[in-house]
Write a protein that binds this DNA or RNA. Structure first.
Lengths: 231, 231
DNA sequence: AAAAAATGGTGATTTGAATCATTCTTAAAA
DNA sequence: TTTTAAGAATGATTCAAATCACCATTTTTT
């Protein structure tokens, strides 16, 4: 057995620092001067996969999803980003175009800065640069973890993973309302709408969770964790 | 249709810069002073998933594979790293333990440096830091690309991907000998030994490739690319 | 050189999940 | 309110790939 378990979803969506604390006054001034605050509705496109990268964004309030558009109509939700998270950095620093789309899941405010400004801030402030580096690396490890989970676990394990993900990483609660459709939940679990629904229904029948419409509550964390572990 | 196609394997394994060119004389001196040159045999473990991260490595010569150990006996090869590539950076900068194993595929020389030395170099030299950042981001985009390919393509497309990967990214030739067993090729394509063998045999019967033992040669790049594209 | 182990290859069978088809339900639009 | 559309749910069927069971071949060890 491995020391590193395949917990598909780790605490990588949670921000580990606050801009205001890390940047100096002049850097912060420049950040606010050169960034643009934008508001988005319940389900708007913030960055579109395939379009030219100009900016990265910091989520101020709300919730966004980062999705990879695969073949026609098939999507994979990579992660959900919360206030304090940056989105678009990997594409910004290593690609000409966005390699994924970013969409709001609810009313959301973001601040966008140009890639140049990001680079300037990173050169100007080592601590900031370190924090950004660490986030990129964490995101990378998170993707590796998902790669192995999505590839090696079967449905019950993957569905358990996404329930634990929302409970632990996003809402820090065992009762929560998920602002995603069944189709989107399937895109997070790497499956189809029908299969996801079936698995959720089984969980409900087995009293592992309660669920009405989009409100979920977890009855047995242990069973979910076991399902996640055993795949 | 998307602008960004799911080319599973992109040129992320190729190094984009040379240490000697980027570091200053004193930095280089420190790099050589604080790094250790180590030689490995045909299939040795360099870093072991789950063990405490102390160092990252620069591949000097040879070829290594980066693998994620999933459940009992199930592995996924994440990438093949060539001379000039660093391995272990994501784990080094964002984890206490290695999140993947690194193993030599042939006689290999590496230089290891401590994470502290890596951090020092990154703080000391902006260009070096930028290059490292860019590599981490590329690796991340590469993993995202694989995630979507492995999840959305079926076997012929995934097998076509790995043949194209070795041909284009690793050996830059349409005839090459792959230093991996069938089992390992399966671990790269995210499938089982038997299924991989069957698919390769079909490719051979259809005259898309020639193959005897570990020597592969590509007869039709176009068919492979089409298979990769259509999944 | 003989024995043992690891790797390569094949056929038959099983199976998890995708797909297809349809109904029910909630939300939005006319 | 009625109509229309979008989302949720369930059953029946199909299918790609995993698993199981072997045998052949190559490599390594004794």
């Amino acid at each position: 057995m491995n020391t590193t378990e395949n917990v598909a979803v780790q605490k990588t969506t949670k921000p580990s620092f606050n801009i205001e604390e890390v940047l100096t006054a002049p850097e912060l001034a420049r950040f606010y001067e050169e960034s643009n605050r934008t508001e988005f509705g319940k389900r708007d496109t913030i960055f579109k996969q395939g379009s030219r990268v100009t900016e990265v964004a910091l989520v101020i309030s709300g919730l966004v999803k980062v999705t990879r558009e695969m073949r026609k109509g098939k999507n994979l939700i990579l992660r959900v980003a919360q206030p304090g998270c940056f989105v678009g950095i990997s594409s910004g620093l290593a690609s000409e175009t966005y390699e994924y789309s970013v969409c709001s899941m609810e009313t959301t405010t973001i601040r966008t800065i140009s890639v140049d400004t990001l680079r300037w801030l990173m050169e100007s402030n080592h601590r900031f640069a370190n924090e950004i580096n660490q986030r990129i690396c964490s995101e990378n490890l998170f993707n590796i973890s998902r790669l192995s989970s999505l590839l090696s676990k079967q449905l019950p394990g993957r569905v358990a993973d996404i329930i634990l993900y929302f409970s632990q990483d996003i809402f820090s609660s065992n009762e929560f309302s998920i602002p995603l459709t069944r189709q989107e939940l399937a895109e997070l679990a790497g499956t189809t709408k029908e299969s996801l629904i079936r698995t959720l229904s089984e969980f409900k029948n087995d009293k592992i969770i309660d669920m009405n419409r989009n409100v979920f509550s977890i009855n047995s964390f242990n069973i979910l964790k076991t399902l996640s572990r055993l795949g």
